[in-house]
Structure formats: structure tokens, C-alpha cells
């Protein structure tokens, strides 16, 4: 019998797979869905992953979100240590930029004219260093031309494929419409699968630049195992339902 699931759950299950073959590295999921995805990756795909409590410690097992559980601490990971780890390359993060372009530049700094931005965001944080040091996957809850911009992002916060001497390591790009990577010809964005609720036309209409099509298959459905872990262990209060409007 077919089981019911949401696009958030599809995204979490696909996102978790990005850490499958990473070995013993630090996995960082920034934002709610990526964070649940790291937990699922650790439980299901790669038990060797190191993950943090979001403050200063490594935890042995992901703890359920929003229920005040005390995680089981087994290591120390201050910001200073995070910098040391990330510069060594032993990390794979999943991030949600406000803008992304055809060169895989990400922007979390500001929108509009830099001198007096229309919208001031967070600031570049660690994106320049992350993008030059380790693999980053991307989660976009609101796939649109505002995010996948025509031309360049407004403030280039990370290295892109147009740089001379360096190249970013981009993993998967997981959105509310489909799954992509940047492994098309000359590192073009490439469509890998389309979620059951979306279509190629919808993706085209909502992407501000050309992309290659590797496959238009439907994204893999979550398994019962995956859903059980997400629903019963990682996010029992269904906080994930607020991330993607569905």
C-alpha cells in the first residue's frame, strides 16, 4: 500500500543522502530541514558522521527537535574548532542562501545596491571560507526566480565556477520542486529529478537561468523506515511542516 508523505519529507530524505559517502566528517545542517536531514543521515546512511548540538558540543545521536531533550555529548566543537575543521576540508554543510546563480555563487549578505541595500541579510558569515574549503549542499524551500536569479547574485558570498584559480565543491541542490547538482557541462546546473507535485515547466518558469536536464524522473519516494525515523524520532512535533508551504 502506498504511504502518504509531504514534500518536506521528500526533501529531508533526499538531503540526508548527500552525506552517505562522506566518511568521518563534520556534517552541518543549517536551518530546520537540513538539521533533520543530518540526523537522518547519521541514523540511516553514515553513523560515523560528527554532528553538533548547535552550540559547542558534538553529540552521539541526534536529539528530537523542540522537545527539550538533553543530547548525549561525546565531543567538543567550539566556533574556533569549527573553523579549524572546516579549513581542513573535513566538513560537508547544507545551507540555504537567499540567492544562487548559474555559477553557484551564493548570497546571504544583502539584496540590492551594496552601499545601501534594499534588504540587509545576515552578512557573509563563514560562506567565503566554507566554499573554498569543503563541500556544500544547498536546500531551497522556495524555488523561484528570486532565489535562482538571472545574472549574478547581488553580493557574491561564496566562490563560484567562474573563479580563476579555485573551484567550489557543490553537492546536491535540493528544492521544493526538484533535485539538482552543478555537474552539467562546464558546471552548469543540472536537473536530476522532479518531485511528484511539480513539473519541468514549473521548474523552468521559476529558474532565472538555463539548466541541463539529466533526468525528468520523479524523485524517489521516502521509505517507511525513513518516515518513521523523521516522524517518531527526529521531529515528533512536525516542525518541518512550516518550512515549505504545502
Amino acid at each position: 500500500m502506498a504511504h502518504q508523505f509531504t514534500i518536506s519529507e521528500v526533501c529531508i530524505c533526499e538531503a540526508a543522502k548527500v552525506w552517505k559517502d562522506d566518511g568521518e566528517i563534520l556534517a552541518t545542517g543549517i536551518g530546520l530541514l537540513p538539521r533533520i536531514a543530518v540526523g537522518l543521515a547519521k541514523k540511516l546512511h553514515n553513523p560515523d558522521l560528527m554532528m553538533t548540538d548547535g552550540e559547542a558540543f558534538l553529540i552521539d545521536q541526534p536529539h528530537p527537535l523542540g522537545v527539550g531533550a538533553e543530547p548525549c555529548v561525546d565531543g567538543y566543537m567550539t566556533y574556533s574548532r569549527v573553523f579549524d575543521v572546516l579549513w581542513s576540508g573535513a566538513r560537508h554543510a547544507m545551507v540555504t542562501p537567499t540567492q544562487i546563480d548559474k555559477y553557484a555563487h551564493l548570497n546571504i549578505s544583502s539584496i540590492g545596491n551594496y552601499a545601501q541595500p534594499k534588504v540587509q541579510l545576515l552578512g557573509v558569515r563563514g560562506f567565503p571560507g566554507n566554499s573554498i574549503s569543503h563541500r556544500n549542499s544547498i536546500f531551497i524551500p522556495n524555488h523561484s526566480k528570486k532565489v535562482f536569479v538571472e545574472g549574478s547574485v547581488d553580493m557574491v558570498s561564496s566562490v563560484g565556477f567562474d573563479a580563476d584559480d579555485v573551484e567550489p565543491l557543490i553537492g546536491k541542490v535540493i528544492t521544493n520542486l526538484g533535485i539538482f547538482d552543478y555537474q552539467g557541462n562546464k558546471n552548469t546546473l543540472r536537473l536530476l529529478s522532479i518531485h511528484s507535485t511539480s513539473s519541468l515547466d514549473e521548474i523552468r518558469d521559476n529558474t532565472g537561468f538555463d539548466f541541463e536536464i539529466f533526468s525528468t524522473d520523479e524523485t524517489t519516494n521516502p521509505t517507511k523506515d525513513e518516515l518513521d525515523i523523521i516522524r517518531n524520532e527526529l521531529d515528533p512535533n512536525n516542525l518541518r511542516s512550516s518550512v515549505i508551504g504545502e
Binding site: 579549513w87 549578505s109 551594496y114 557573509v124 560562506f127 567565503p128 571560507g129 566554499s131 573554498i132 574549503s133 553580493m155 557574491v156 558570498s157 561564496s158 566562490v159 563560484g160 573563479a163 580563476d164 584559480d165 579555485v166
Partner: peptide, 13 residues
């Protein structure tokens, strides 16, 4: 010395 900042608008700005 560091590699951080290369290829971004941090250095342009």
C-alpha cells in the same frame, strides 16, 4: 595569510 575571501565580493568590496 589565508585562502578565505578569494573569489568573493568580500575582496571586491
Amino acid at each position: 595569510p589565508t585562502r578565505v575571501g578569494i573569489g568573493t565580493d568580500v575582496l571586491k568590496n
